[in-house]
């Protein structure tokens, strides 16, 4: 899945070739996944990324999913991080402005395309 692909296969060369917005997201996901592994001892099975416009500005969200081996239940961890408007690619910005404030817009597919480009 996308998360495993992002976390395990991204190389420095690949990251270097990405636009700053996507590069920051990829590095952020790696850091967060490492943190989850460090704190919970878990490797997320999947991740999704979103962006939203809030009253405090734009926020990137990354969501991590894993199956708790003890309870066998799925759990979700959500990280948020502020992002400045001028960093956001025009096509993503246009999608966000089409939505109401606080509505999450998925950026997962765009991230996948950017990585594979």
């Amino acid at each position: 899945m996308i998360a495993t692909m992002i976390i395990l296969t991204l190389t420095a060369a690949l990251v270097a070739g990405l636009a700053l917005f996507w590069k920051n997201i990829v590095e952020w996901i790696k850091k967060a996944a490492n943190k989850i592994k460090e704190v919970l001892g878990l490797t997320p099975d999947g991740t999704r990324t979103f962006i939203s416009r809030t009253i405090d500005g734009f926020k990137n969200k990354s969501k991590y999913y894993y199956k708790n081996k003890v309870t066998s239940e799925w759990e979700e961890i959500v990280y948020t991080k502020a992002v400045s408007e001028d960093e956001i690619p025009d096509d993503i910005l246009a999608k966000v402005y089409k939505q109401k404030i606080d509505v999450e817009v998925s950026t997962t597919e765009e991230l996948k395309l950017a990585i594979n480009a």
Binding site: K35, Y65, N68, E73, W74, E76, V78, Y79
Partner: peptide, 15 residues
């Protein structure tokens, strides 16, 4: 990294 704003159990259909 930002802050983990929530950690919650979700059902399989949601995932």
């Amino acid at each position: 990294i930002g802050n983990p704003i929530l950690k919650r159990t979700v059902d399989e259909e949601y995932v």
